[in-house]
Nucleic acid binder design. Structure first.
Length: 319
DNA sequence: GTCGATGATTGAAC
DNA sequence: GTTCAATCATCGAC
């Protein structure tokens, strides 16, 4: 019964339409692959599964045919024997039952070997998909932008993860993996990531400045958080502004767009980060507490990223 | 081939 | 369930 269920689930037995592809899709989903990649492997899996299915059905047909042929043969023999000796219907029934039992055990073996074949195929398919592929440049950029603009609290919420996954063309679990790896590696070697952090700070500031400039042109209040247009990148630039504000000596208000451009201009001409101007790097390690865990800051980011221990945090999303 | 970067996995802790 | 930390396995530049 379990074998039957498995064969049904794998699309080997039961109705042909969709069975195989559903199993292939399930296998692909289980492997965490993106919906776009591995279409060749996907069709490969489907083709192999169809092959197994075909073999299974033809073998099953053969067994059924052999079973009925053998039953007929035995019945004929018994009929012939009945001329010489009396044969009760019960005896005939018993013989037929024995034959059916034998053939059903053979069928069971067929089902078992088919299951094994499917399992092997499945594991090979999954193994192939486990091969690591680097994310594309754009995806990495999107993830890095989010990470560095939420440096005080780099724990994206489920919604944010989903949005990032969609933007990057990867799965939510891949986003989680990426953030897990990034947090650890950033923490382990902040110095190494300083340059990258500055790079993304400048990028974020440019975006913010652009938005602010557009907002100014439209005669509307130019605040960085006002022009996000639903993009988390621009709506949560708290950490970047933390650095920029420190340069400007303004610890409270958001830097106006013109000043931002000026700061940006200065920033892009600095090679060693912001230490010389502010006394601390643009992204300072103080976001990690004494225990080397992420801590909340009294910066704009903490407004959008509620404080709390990792895991309980529901960081902000722009949507 | 080597080596650093990086995505995935695993097990422990919460 | 999530996150951290260690580790593995692969990619890509050299």
């Amino acid at each position: 019964m379990r074998l039957d269920n498995m064969l049904l689930a794998e699309g080997v037995s039961g109705p042909e339409k969709g069975g195989g592809s559903a199993a292939a899709a399930a296998a692909a989903a289980a492997a965490g692959g993106s919906p776009n990649d591995g279409s060749i492997e996907h069709s490969d899996y489907r083709a192999k599964l169809a092959q197994i299915r075909q073999i299974y059905h033809s073998e099953l047909e053969k067994y059924e045919q052999a079973c009925s042929e053998f039953t007929n043969h035995v019945m004929n023999l018994l009929r012939e024997q009945s001329r010489t000796r009396p044969i009760s219907p019960k005896e005939i029934e018993r013989m037929v039952a024995i034959i059916h039992r034998k053939f059903s055990s053979i069928q069971m073996q067929l089902k078992q070997s088919t299951c094994e074949a499917v399992m092997i195929l499945r594991s090979r398919f999954l193994d192939a998909r486990r091969k690591r592929r680097n994310f594309n440049k754009q995806a990495t950029e999107v993830l890095n932008e989010y990470f560095y603009s939420h440096l005080s609290n780099p724990y994206p919420s489920e919604e944010a993860k989903e949005e990032l996954a969609k933007k990057c063309g990867i799965t939510v679990s891949q986003v989680s993996n990426w953030f897990g790896n990034k947090r650890i590696r950033y923490k382990k070697n902040i110095g190494k990531f300083q340059e990258e952090a500055n790079l993304y700070a400048v990028k974020t500031a440019v975006d913010a400045a652009n938005v602010s400039a557009h907002a100014s042109q439209a005669n509307s209040p130019a605040t960085p958080n006002s022009g996000s247009s639903g993009s988390y990148t621009l709506s949560h630039t708290g950490d970047a502004y933390l650095g920029l504000r420190s340069l400007n000596g303004d610890g409270v208000s958001v830097t106006p767009a013109v000043q931002q451009v000026d700061i940006l201009h200065r920033a892009t001409h600095l090679t060693a980060g912001y230490e010389d101007l502010s006394g601390s790097p643009l992204y300072t390690p103080h976001r990690l507490d004494a225990n080397n865990s992420w801590q909340d800051n009294t910066n704009p980011s903490s407004i959008t990223s509620p404080p709390g221990p990792p895991g309980s945090i529901h960081s902000d999303t722009s949507s």
